[in-house]
């Protein structure tokens, strides 16, 4: 039973296997724990090591939730077409849905707003498509009202391997800039 005044927050990071979606969830999990939330993190992936639907979910709440899996998403990231159908019917009308249009040709349909941003293109410009997940992390951190950016930065720093830290931080900040561009546009 929730006794805290923290509101529930449900996030999903989805795409194809190998896109680093678990890492996205780990960063936000760590950040939300730092903010005093109880965090339930779940995942789903295919038996293959690359490709197929992959998703990592977070349910953050003031106390241990009755049900720890997602039922009403507040934040949804889609990095690949393979993940579009998986969230059908559980996206809130006021959800933030972020997609990478380069790999998501048919975005989900609904009353929610879909934000298309050049996530993988930005990552490629920075040197590697593999950091698309961190660019997306920056976007979500900047758009979120619940998680301060410096807490996300701290979480990324603590998780990132040292030799990729600079690249990861660049990717995070490039994501933040993409989101800020939206706000002023």
């Amino acid at each position: 039973m929730t006794t805290s005044n923290k509101k529930n927050l449900e996030m999903r990071f989805s795409g194809a296997g190998g896109q680093g979606l678990q890492l996205c969830a780990k960063i936000f999990s760590k950040a939300l724990i730092g903010e005093g939330y109880h965090v339930s993190m779940s995942q789903s992936y295919e038996p293959t090591s690359r490709g197929g639907l992959s998703r990592a979910d977070i349910v953050a709440s003031g106390d241990t939730p009755d049900y720890p899996l997602t039922t009403e998403l507040d934040v949804l990231l889609i990095l690949d077409q393979a993940a579009v159908n998986a969230s059908e019917g559980i996206i809130r009308d006021d959800a933030t849905v972020i997609i990478d249009p380069r790999r998501t040709k048919n975005p989900p349909q609904g009353n929610f707003k879909v934000i298309a941003l050049p996530l993988s293109e930005t990552a490629i410009k920075l040197g590697s498509e593999r950091i698309t997940n961190v660019v997306a992390t920056g976007v979500i951190a900047a758009l979120s009202h619940d998680i301060p950016l410096d807490i996300v930065e701290g979480a990324l720093k603590s998780i990132s391997p040292k030799k990729f830290l600079a690249l990861n931080m660049d990717a995070l900040h490039a994501g933040v800039e993409l989101a800020r561009g939206l706000k002023t546009a």
Binding site: I33, S42, Q43, T64
Partner: peptide, 10 residues
């Protein structure tokens, strides 16, 4: 599986 792979604050 969902409980085995679930991470919770406990």
């Amino acid at each position: 599986e969902s409980l085995g792979h679930l991470e919770e604050t406990i």
